[in-house]
Design a protein around this nucleic acid. Structure first.
Lengths: 156, 156
DNA sequence: TTTCGACTGGGCAATCTGTTCAGCAATACG
DNA sequence: CGTATTGCTGAACAGATTGCCCAGTCGAAA
């Protein structure tokens, strides 16, 4: 589960050029092919690398508006609300949290006007008491993991 | 930029089995290899598929705690704050938003105690007036895109 | 000293990729 | 009504990659 320097380099390399094969990878890393293969397998079975699914851009799909919604849930309605939100395609992720709200979800919509429809659909459910929404304007730091990987790899 | 049914199936297939090649893909889809190739190329140059970077699990790297922080920024300090947050590896993403706060970021940490350190580092910057943090307890809906892709593909 | 795990370097058959070609059908255009 | 254009099919080929196996080296732990 600990990541060493070579593991770090493997992840960085894959992040930069995801389509390269194991052979090319081993050449770049200066190790034998079997080693690269074994390391990669280990990272995957460890769960450090979950997979290589395609990263789809919602904006390119026609959903350029992103928002975060904080929800307050009626006591005991948690499971129902979860199930409800899971059925809404525009809900990209959902977390239960401590703090002000009880849940927090990421939404996308086709437009600001469409966002209203999405919010209505999300909130129009009995167990949800209140919702407050923050619309995303800019995304100065897109979801990233590389800096964390580098930090983890150096702490060997 | 519009996604048709075949594009949708390609994305779904890639999401399920990211490592399959174009040839195998064309067999599963029942189309010629060239077609699958062309569609995939198009999806990528369209920006619909951004890439196939490894999906790294922060928890497996030793960062099992996730939190969302809402930040209030002093007037005109936005760019400085952005630059500051970009240097913190534990900041996985950053958005500027409308609503209560001015920015919202996703953080990870090694433990609840370590989260304090991360927050101190994030907030210990001049342009940040106030921060409120919500710690994630559960993640009933992990970041997903498939339902949205299916919806987009059906609206042909 | 012995054992064990990790890495190297090599070989082999099967498979896939990149690329090119010709043919075909539907569609847009002058 | 001809004529490009576009998207798809089916096929071919050389070159590269994969999955798999094996023998040998090296350092650390027992």
């Amino acid at each position: 589960m600990a990541i060493d320097h070579l593991d770090g380099r493997i992840i960085l390399l894959l992040a930069r050029e995801p389509r390269i094969g194991v052979l090319e990878m081993s050449r770049r890393l200066g190790v034998a092919r079997g080693t690269a293969q074994a390391r990669l397998d280990r990272l995957q079975s460890n769960g450090v690398i979950r997979g290589f699914g395609p990263q789809v851009d919602p904006a390119a799909l026609g959903y350029p508006v992103t928002a975060f919604a904080t929800l307050q849930i009626r006591q005991g309605q948690g499971p129902d609300v979860r199930a409800h939100l899971a059925t809404v395609p525009e809900v990209l992720e959902l977390h239960t949290t401590t703090g002000t709200g009880d849940m927090m979800c990421r939404l996308v919509a086709r437009s600001n006007a469409d966002l209203q429809r999405v919010i209505d659909r999300v909130v129009g459910f009995d167990g949800i008491v209140r919702a407050s929404t923050a619309i995303v304007m800019e995304n100065p730091v897109p979801l990233r993991i590389i800096p964390l990987v580098e930090q983890a790899a150096e702490e060997t």
